[in-house]
Amino acid sequence: MACPYLEYRKADGARSFDHERAYCAAAETFVQPMRADICNNRYDLDHGQHCEIFQAHSEGE
């Protein structure tokens, strides 16, 4: 299951794009495409293990 903070949006108020792009609701920003692979648990990547943003927000909950 992908990161619970992952959203796909076309805009964030400041910027807009032709396609929906990976957006981190925890960091409140669009994420780099490389990081989106972590958000989506692609290949051998896992947001629980590899994303410091998820870890920081999970610890704070």
Binding site: F17, R21, Q32, P33, M34
Partner: peptide, 10 residues
């Protein structure tokens, strides 16, 4: 590239 994208520079 493969790291940042249009979110860094449209």
């Amino acid at each position: 590239g493969g790291v940042h994208g249009k979110e860094a520079n449209p």
